[in-house]
Design a protein around this nucleic acid. Sequence first.
DNA 1: ACCTGAACACCGTTCAAGT
DNA 2: ACCTGAACACCGTTCAAGT
Lengths: 219, 219
Amino acid sequence: MARRLSAAPARKRADRYHHGDLRRALLQAAVRTIGQHGVAALTLRGVGSTLGVSRTALYRHFTDKAALLAAVAAEGFRMLRAELSESWERGGRGRRGFAAMGVAYVRFAASHPSHYRVMFGADVSAEHHAMFGADIFGAEHADLAQEGAGAFQVLADAIVALQEHRQARRDDPRQMAMFVWATTHGVAMLAIDGRLGQEASAIDTLTHYMTGRVLAAIA
Amino acid sequence: MARRLSAAPARKRADRYHHGDLRRALLQAAVRTIGQHGVAALTLRGVGSTLGVSRTALYRHFTDKAALLAAVAAEGFRMLRAELSESWERGGRGRRGFAAMGVAYVRFAASHPSHYRVMFGADVSAEHHAMFGADIFGAEHADLAQEGAGAFQVLADAIVALQEHRQARRDDPRQMAMFVWATTHGVAMLAIDGRLGQEASAIDTLTHYMTGRVLAAIA
DNA sequence: ACCTGAACACCGTTCAAGT
DNA sequence: ACCTGAACACCGTTCAAGT
């Protein structure tokens, strides 16, 4: 406690520059801050200070704060896709795997609520861009759209697989995938918002009820 | 154009005080700003200036900006509940009315995207309060919770009615209502996020597909 | 009671300047 | 190329003071 007397950056040493993958370091610091204290606590000055770097160094790697948030969102979709794929595989690529994906999805959102909110928040949405008249997206936003589509594709592929094994009706797979995604996303949001009551088991109960009803709906 | 030379507040006249229902005026100004320019454009200084009032006058009626946003959200749930009730009634309180509620819900979100986001955003959620350790909510947040529950109740009541007419399975109505809400909310969010493609008809198509699958799932 | 103006402690972003 | 410090134009919020 008494060791450090100044309010100087913690990591900073004699060498003045960061030198290394500052972009990645900034992104990880942002993800950590959001996970621990929420999006509202994320300031460019704060992430810079955490890394022992000036508060404007960030602009060398991201065009602005929105671009940083878009990168955070893209990282979230990458993580989500990985967990969905794993659940689908380990569940045996059938109805059981499909249900496991639903559980994994809700668990991801419940474990990283602030990060999940950024993934679907206004800062990052197409609505936001439409409102401010920007019809050309930055590189981060293009990456975000791609990662979001990737996560969606895992779900769509699973539905096609179910169709091939005659475990799902033969509607348009994309339409079916959007329906399933909407339901799961809705449960996740209600859980994050604290609208499912205070007991933690309420989330599990609804999640399992949901997977049962969804499998019935697409059968 | 050349008439007003100063940057002074537009409505302000000789009488210095607002005198009237300033609280209501502030709330409506906030709703309008959010609807026209998004939440990011909402500043306390801005709403005050719009009403020809000092930027701190607001604190006589709301404890802080979060309380104003909570009131905006509560107002949104009030509007949503009214539209849901009307659709249910006019649709004949049966399966057709139930489908009409789904369509009305998604249309509400698509018509007021920023307002809808505030209703389900982090500023207003229980997660947010838990994160900052506030276990006692303000009056606005209590009102918000009540209005949210009211909108949910319309849906739950409709499901009970369907059950009584043997048009829905006899699971726990609250569980069923949460499932249906989650699905509809999910479609609404995907629509707002612009994740349903660029054509406007894609929203209608998915909404109708959704209502069909949901009715099958709860039958 | 209700409203004001000045002040405080923050923000994101820009830009000329350093290495 | 990459980073810095100072400066700019904003915020929400507090508070003593006015009517």
